[in-house]
Design a protein around this nucleic acid. Structure first.
Lengths: 337, 337
DNA sequence: TATTAGCACTCCTCTATCGTGAGTGCTAAC
DNA sequence: GTTAGCACTCACGATAGAGGAGTGCTAATA
């Protein structure tokens, strides 16, 4: 168990290091307001804190730097939630002024605002389309052998795919198919679409039209709904301003990580609510060494979850980022129906 | 006018510098196959080429490096179009194996392939949606006061927007509006949609329903069709591998340039066909110092133009990039209907 | 007259050395 | 338990010298 003095010193060191990115020495600490002990005393305490694993030295005679364990302790015990400023509130709420913005646009703009406010890089996972339910299904013929299949979901999301039309299909056949699909599939979540189609609609279509050769497979293939467009970034270049990313290899690894959708997904905690902070190696990813990720989740309707996140150096301003993420995720949850 | 020997030496220097990124000395050149002159002779010629502005020195006693003028001369006069390899052809044609891919997906994949093949960064300007013509218009009600408006174009592109429904609108009113719009607006290019709506449809709607308060303005606002999603990138991190981008400031400027849609547009030549090469300052952009851009345009249908581009160091492998861009733009033009 | 060998000179790059200063750990005094 | 004092460590920056690649010029050569 840490003494009060140790807590106080640890806090000062981390706060100072977050602000300056420079190793903190005992004299600097002694000069701080409210610090009543001498540099020598502080040196002793720092040595103890280092033995306990909360601090590190960059070399034998340098000042101290927080270790991952130190940051972890800091966010768990020393972080007083800072009240969000009215200025930040205003900026965030400007998001919702235009009431008829599509969810996707709000998300996109959120990413930009988040990175601007924090000066770090923001990542937003769009709401999980898989849980959207089919509202309407339609097919618009383009040429003799191609058409666009469109699914509108109850949240106003629109999925569309090009499909090819078998030669023997007449316009009325298409109409029949559309009717059957709307009869059977409205209200079904996208993730179950494929199954339901096979189980219920396929037979009916065959019966009415005589042929059913996977014509719709592309639009009903579940896998099509998860990849790609669901991740939004803001301020990718912000990280270049952080002194810890003045190393090209580091930057390359992070950029490459962000270009791989599958990898970036892993930094989001599954199925969890509230604010989560992962520090350095807690992210289980080599490229994330020296980086912390703070995530929050939002909810659209009752089921669709999404996440917003900030990725920055372990030395990031946790207080501020937490308050902003917390407020923003709540706003999105409240404001988007 | 340059002598044959000068041409030969200039070519060797540029080829060598493109391959190694190191200043080229007279002895190196003399050792090359087919070089029948002594180092001293070559030194004299190099001094002349420098006086003429085709070469530069990084310092008084270094080897020579091509100047922008040198590269310009190289691409204009020394660049023999290299035949594209069958391997590259195969890779590019793999794009079109899945016949029913949406245009957007093809474009996205093209960007990835381009950057892989060239090891530079690729930029693709999607086809100009503005010229697509309306194929079908529909409105899908979601709640009492909101709906999704959908426009499908003749090329299978789908635009959709959330709209709000005025309180006094009944479902049959909506149906009427949809019918009127389909009557009047099918075949109209997106860019003229706003005008046509005001001129023809608005009055009719008012007459039939009594109210028309800008309900559709959001989907008909032309500006909504140009921004954002139209630019695709591939291999953004590739440039980090080039020795000329080992400078963080350079990288930052380029990345920021690419994040600003409006700025990146300016590197594409307007309205021009065929391959275009812009070297360094010819791009009229500070961030593009030391960078060359090679662009090619493709055509979908008879009217919709788009561009594909590679951005790399001025020291890029022009031969190879030109051949790849040329082939790919032609393939896209041929294969996408 | 064009070409080439030879040579002095330039300047980058790498390495080693050294002084400086911030910071530490330890000891002894308070 | 706390603090002053002091020797010690080590990163950092400046300085200097060796090595080497390359140039420009001059004079000899074909």
């Amino acid at each position: 168990m840490l003494t009060n003095r140790q807590l106080q010193i640890l806090q000062v060191i981390i706060d100072d290091f977050i602000a300056t990115a420079q190793p903190v020495g005992s004299r600097q600490i002694a000069k701080k307001d409210g610090m009543t002990f001498s540099a020598a005393t502080i040196r002793n305490e720092m040595a103890d804190l280092e033995d306990l694993g909360y601090l590190e030295k960059t070399h034998t005679s340098s000042g101290r730097v927080p270790s991952e364990k130190g940051y972890r302790f800091y966010v768990d015990h020393l972080l007083k939630p800072q009240v969000i400023t009215t200025q930040d509130i205003k900026t965030i709420q400007s998001l919702f002024q235009d009431r008829m913005m599509e969810t996707e646009q709000v998300i996109r703009k959120s990413a930009a605002i988040l990175s601007d406010l924090t000066t770090y890089t923001s990542i937003i996972l769009g709401p999980d389309v898989q849980l959207h339910k089919v509202k309407q299904f339609s097919i618009v013929p383009l040429t003799a052998d191609s058409a666009v299949a469109i699914i509108v979901t109850d949240n106003g999301h629109v999925e569309n795919r090009l499909i090819s039309i078998p030669k023997n299909f007449s316009p009325s056949d298409i109409e029949k198919v559309v009717n059957i699909l709307n009869d059977r599939l409205v209200g079904v979540p996208l993730e179950q679409l494929h199954n339901k189609l096979e189980q219920e609609a396929a037979a009916v279509i065959k019966q009415h039209i005589g042929t059913y050769d996977g014509l719709l497979s592309s639009i009903f293939d579940i896998n099509n709904y998860q990849g790609e467009g669901k991740i939004y970034y803001g301020g990718k270049t912000n990280m270049l301003n952080q002194p810890e990313f003045h190393d090209l290899n580091k930057v390359r690894m992070l950029m490459e990580l962000m270009e791989k959708t599958s990898q970036i997904q892993t930094i989001f905690p599954l199925d969890e609510q509230g604010i989560h902070i992962r520090i350095g190696s807690e992210n289980n990813h080599l490229a994330m060494e020296g980086c912390s990720v703070i995530t929050a989740s939002y909810l659209i309707g009752t089921e669709q979850k999404g996440s917003i996140a900030i990725i920055g150096p372990t030395r990031m301003d946790y207080k501020r980022v937490v308050s902003i993420l917390d407020f923003m995720s709540n706003e999105i949850t409240k404001r988007i129906r």
